[in-house]
Design a protein around this nucleic acid. Structure first.
Lengths: 236, 236
DNA sequence: CCAAAAGTGTTCTAGTTACACCCATGA
DNA sequence: TCATGGGTGTAACTAGAACACTTTTGG
C-alpha cells in the first residue's frame, strides 16, 4: 500500500525514569551518554523505538539492557515532542517511569553504560529535557502513590513497617504519625506478617511483612488514601 | 550537525478524543475519514505532527481546525505505538482528550470533515485502534473527575445544580443523592449563585450558578471526592 | 541499666451517608 | 388544582487526626 505523502517522519525514542529506594532516600538510575552531542553528560537511559516493537516493548528492552531485570513495574508517563528538544534532529520521546528494587539491580550489566544511582535530591544536570521528565515523574509518583499501593515495588520481598514508613515519608518529604500510618496500612489487609524479625536496624527488631500478591494486584487500582491531606502535597 | 544513523524514522500523529455533554448524555465528536484506507469510516479527528510544532500545539491546531475553538480543556492521554496500528505505515499516535461545551461547537466549520456527535453509548466502530483510545479516555475521565472539578468544562458558562447532577450521574452511570451531592458541590465554594433561574426544564425553575474561575483554576488539582465509594467505579 | 527503635489504644472531630417532605409554578 | 421538578435539614455512623507511654534488647 502507498505511504502517506508529504509528511515528515521523525525519530521516536523511549526514555526511562528509574526510581530506587535504599531504605533512606530515593534514587534515580542515570547513565553517562556515550554519543555526541552532550557525550559524557548524565542522562536518562533511553533508546530509539525499533521497527518491530511497540512502545512498551521498547521500554522493557531498554530497562532489561541496563539492569538485567524484566519484571519491573513500569508505566508510560508522558510524551515529549518539542521540536528543539534534541538538537541533532527531531525526536519524539515517550517517557516511562519504573520502580525497581534497588537490591536486584545488577551492577555488572550496566558497566558499559556507566550507570550510577543518584539521590533524587542531588542529581547532576541532565541533557535535553530529561530534567523535565524527572520532575513530571516525581509528581506522578507522588500523585499515584497517594491513592494506590505501588511504592512496595521499591522494597525487597520482605520488609518492615518502619521501612514502609520511611518510604512514604521520603516521597512526601514530611512526617506521618506512625500509629495512624501503620493502622491504615494494615487495615488494607494487603500484608502478611512473618515470624522473623529484621534485627539490622534496631535491637528490638521489627517484624517482616510480605505483600499478599493476590490481593495486591486486584487492589492496585483501589483507593487507599495513605496520605493525610493529600492536597497539601499534590498541588500544581 | 550529523543525524543519528541507522535508525528508523516514523510518522507521528495526534488524535483527539473530544467529549461533549448535551444535558442528557455524553457525546463524542467523530469525523468521517477522507483518505484511504478505511475511507468514509468513522474516526477520531487527527493529523500528523508538523516539523515546527510540538505535540500540544498540534493538538490545539487539530481541534481548532475541526471546531473553531481554541481555549479548550485538553490534556495528553497516552501514546499508542503498536507497529501494526496503521496498516499504511508505522505511525505513532499521541492521543489527547478534550472537553468542550457542546453549544460552542460551530457546525459550519466542520462541514468539510463530515463531523458528527455520537452518544458515547452508541458509537459506530472506529478505525485502527481508535476504539482503544476512546476506552482509555473514558477511563481517565472517570478517574480524574472523581478527584478534580473538570467536568464543568462540558457545561455552558451558566449552569444549574440539576445539570451538574446529571453530568456526574451520566459519567458514572449511577445515581447520587441530590441532597448530599449538592451539599458537597457547594461546600467547595467554587460556585457563585446567580439571580436568574433556568425555566427551560421545570416550572419552578433552577437557579443558575457560575464557576468562580479564580478559585477554580487554583483548585483544579485539589481533591474533591465528589464521588462516594470511588473504588466501585474506578476498578481496572 | 540504658539508649534506641518498635509497637500499641483512646478520644475527639469532621465528614459521609441515609433518608422525606415542602415549595414554586405553568398548564 | 395538580403534576413536575427544585430545594432543603437532621440524625447516625464512620473515618481520620491528635496524642504518649510501654516493650525489647544489645552494648
Amino acid at each position: 500500500m502507498l505511504k502517506y505523502s508529504g509528511q515528515t517522519r521523525m525519530l521516536v525514542a523511549v526514555d526511562c525514569i528509574i526510581f530506587g529506594f535504599d531504605g533512606d532516600s530515593y534514587k534515580l538510575l542515570l547513565v553517562q551518554r556515550g554519543i555526541a552531542p552532550e557525550k559524557r553528560k548524565w542522562s536518562l537511559m533511553g533508546g530509539f523505538v525499533q521497527p518491530n516493537e511497540n512502545l512498551d516493548e521498547g521500554a522493557i528492552r531498554i530497562l532489561k539492557d541496563l539492569t538485567g531485570l524484566d519484571d519491573v513495574y513500569m508505566e508510560q508517563l508522558h510524551t515529549f515532542g518539542n521540536p528543539k528538544r534534541d538538537p541533532v534532529e527531531r525526536t519524539i520521546a515517550v517517557a516511562y517511569f519504573a520502580l525497581i528494587n534497588i537490591q536486584k539491580y545488577e551492577k555488572s550489566l550496566s558497566k558499559e553504560y556507566n550507570a550510577e544511582w543518584f539521590p533524587l535530591q542531588a542529581m547532576p544536570e541532565l541533557i535535553f529535557d530529561h530534567g523535565d521528565m524527572v520532575e513530571k515523574a516525581k509528581h506522578r509518583l507522588r500523585y499515584k502513590a497517594s491513592l494506590h499501593p505501588l511504592l512496595f515495588e521499591l522494597l525487597p520481598e520482605k520488609f518492615t513497617l518502619p521501612q514502609v514508613h520511611a518510604l512514604y515519608e521520603g516521597l512526601y518529604e514530611t512526617i506521618f504519625d506512625k500509629r495512624n500510618f501503620n493502622r491504615k496500612l494494615l487495615s488494607t489487609n494487603l500484608f502478611i506478617k512473618q515470624n522473623e524479625k529484621d534485627k539490622e536496624s534496631s535491637k528490638k527488631g521489627a517484624y517482616f511483612y510480605q505483600l499478599d500478591r493476590s490481593k495486591y494486584s486486584s487492589n492496585l487500582q483501589a483507593f487507599l488514601k495513605f496520605i493525610p491531606n493529600p492536597e497539601e502535597y499534590l498541588l500544581s
